[in-house]
């Protein structure tokens, strides 16, 4: 593992209300260059709040990111954000232009990206006609159009069939080898074990444990990562 890209130090966030909701309670971790860090947590654990604070979309009450986030960030939100009337090519052109990617570079990069996630055949199909899995893949491409240094993925394979999931995992592994740093929030233990170098288990706004999947399994004596997860977060329903 190489040098740290940035460190999150003592992040706190409380949503006002009656009673107030403490979404983050002193979250700290470090992420290294080229690493894939998974954030595992049950519903309402604080994963999305953590991501939004990291991205600067939400102001934390306390805490800091040292030395700061890299300037170029890609973000795939939990919902597939695509415009129904635009084609995948038009989406990539739009976000490429918004990230100031030069036109000449875009012309070469768009077909390559579409090819990478097997969307070439649908390049000129309006998004309203794409399946949920295809929209998910397109939204991942939108996060990568400007070749970011740091990629944040919020449940990137939710709603995908197993074939598409494996296809996306292989794609992410290739990207990691190219040096991309990834923060990945997921519910899927298989995804965490397959793609992530390290995993942080988050619940009630706190990181309960952090380590490689193998380290966590060994430390908590669970035969699988899912057992470790249930051991740390409990079996009671959250929703």
């Amino acid at each position: 593992m190489s040098s740290p890209l940035f460190a999150v130090q003592d992040l706190w966030k409380t949503y006002p209300g009656d009673p107030p909701v403490q979404a983050l309670r002193g979250v700290s971790f470090e992420i290294s260059r080229g690493e894939v860090l998974g954030i595992l947590g049950p519903n309402g654990a604080g994963k999305t709040t953590l991501i939004r604070c990291l991205l600067g979309l939400l102001s934390p009450d306390r805490g800091s990111i040292v030395p700061g986030l890299p300037p170029s960030i890609g973000y795939q939100p939990q919902e597939s954000l695509v415009y129904a009337a635009l084609t995948p090519t038009e989406h990539l052109e739009l976000f490429g232009r918004l990230h100031d990617v030069p036109s000449s570079h875009l012309r070469a990069r768009i077909p390559a990206l579409l090819e990478d996630l097997a969307l070439t055949d649908k390049a000129r199909t309006q998004a309203r006609k794409l399946s949920g899995g295809l929209k998910r893949r397109l939204s991942l491409l939108l996060a990568l159009i400007h070749e970011p240094e740091f990629l944040v993925l919020d449940e990137p394979t939710s709603g995908m069939d197993p074939q598409s999931r494996h296809f996306v995992w292989e794609f992410l592994q290739r990207k990691q080898k190219e040096g991309l740093t990834v923060l990945l929030s997921t519910h899927l233990m298989e995804e965490a074990q397959r793609v992530c170098d390290r995993v942080a288990i988050l619940d009630h706004g706190e990181i309960l444990d952090l380590g490689t999947p193998e380290e966590l399994i060994e430390k908590h004596g669970g035969p699988t990562l899912e057992d470790v997860f249930l051991h740390l977060t409990g079996r009671h329903l959250r929703d």
């Binding site: 600067g56 979309l57 973000y75 919902e79 954000l81 976000f95 100031d100």
Partner: peptide
């Protein structure tokens, strides 16, 4: 939908 969040991460 959240597009404005995506825009905030662009230039």
């Amino acid at each position: 939908a959240g597009f404005w969040d995506l825009f905030r991460l662009t230039r």
